[in-house]
Design a protein around this nucleic acid. Structure first.
Lengths: 195, 195
DNA sequence: GTATTTCTTGTATGAGTATACAATTTTTTA
DNA sequence: TAAAAAATTGTATACTCATACAAGAAATAC
């Protein structure tokens, strides 16, 4: 049982610090010193481990994307019927681990900055395509092909909007409530796909 | 017919320049010089007319909020039935004048920055409350009180999400398509409010 | 226990930026 | 047209910040 390398420990500390610091100050306003302070480290250390501020931000987003993927896979494992599989995709977005004020804030910052940072834009494109593909696949048993793209778009927009609003709200979001609402919306869309 | 004051002309030019410059570079990265250049002016001129960068940003957002309000009122005027009034609120968000790449980008920047700028936060709070109140009012004839908050939340999240996605997309959004989809979503929610 | 590698941090640098200020030009007024 | 007011811009300033660099500390290997 090899002890965890210092490198891995620092990476995790600094990414956690980035999440907290970005929530507090925003992507653009946050400084290396802010982040380092949040992680109990120093600015040059960030350069040492991540190379640059930009790469730190990208690695932090990659971390969030991994969490999302893990939540999805966990729910997939427990899903037996086609409906459960669709709901797994929808509810994964509101897993307790993900749907937190800090992460909602970070996603909002991500959305605002992706158009102006190629590295972030790439991550965003990949993630969005992945979610779309999952949704499409799980919608297939329920929605006729000519309506599928619309239903997917409505679902995806709705989910993003919920995240966005959670980032604005002063009260912390309730993941269980969000899941219930999302489930209801998904079921509604299955029952009656909008023309 | 008094000629328009230079002051008003410059205000408009600079706000238009801000919209274009922010779309290109983002709220935080954009410089006074960028904006001035976009408007065919100079940085000190902005200080002269707006006092500071922050106030320019706030005035620009106020301008967008005015456009939204105008779109809403215009559609209200033509709405005769309760259903038409509800659809007026929904469709106003996707009016041709509003649902443009530049404005979608600006709203995204606005959402990301509101939590960290008191002036923007105030605008955001006021606008959100106003839209919520309109929606609530127009939903009343269709949705039982115990479901109304949920339906409103779903609609509002969906609409925000559509804007968000439009800001990311490389192809310019189609306002007519967005209106049709939003109309379908609204009708679906009226027919079967989610539990 | 020495040598080597890994890690940490103090300091320096250089780029970038909002805005104050003052001088100048343009417009308006009388 | 003369005087006053409004508008414009060049320049200077004060500041922040990412990051390079180098010296030093700690950990690891041999």
């Amino acid at each position: 049982m090899g002890r965890r390398k210092i490198r891995d420990i620092r990476h995790e500390e600094l990414i956690e610090g980035t999440i907290r610091a970005v929530q507090a100050k925003g992507f653009a306003a946050v400084t290396m010193a802010d982040i380092a302070h949040e992680a109990g480290s120093t600015a040059p250390s960030i350069t040492y481990y991540f190379g640059s501020k930009d790469r730190l931000m990208e690695d932090t987003m990659r971390h969030l994307l991994r969490l999302l993927r893990a939540a999805l896979l966990a729910r997939y494992r427990a899903a037996l019927t086609p409906e459960e599989r669709l709901l797994a995709v929808v509810e994964a977005n509101f897993a307790d681990r993900l749907f937190t004020p800090a992460q909602c804030a970070l996603w909002t910052q991500f959305w605002a900055n992706a158009p102006h940072a190629p590295g972030l834009a790439r991550l965003h494109r990949i993630n969005r395509a992945r979610v779309a593909s999952h949704l499409d696949h799980e919608l297939a048993p329920f929605v006729a092909p000519e309506h599928r793209a619309t239903v997917r778009h409505v679902l995806q927009s709705y989910m993003d909007g919920v995240w966005l609003e959670a980032a604005q709200s002063s009260t912390p979001p309730n993941a269980a409530t969000a899941r219930a609402e999302a489930r209801a919306v998904a079921r509604l869309l299955l029952a009656r796909p909008p023309a």
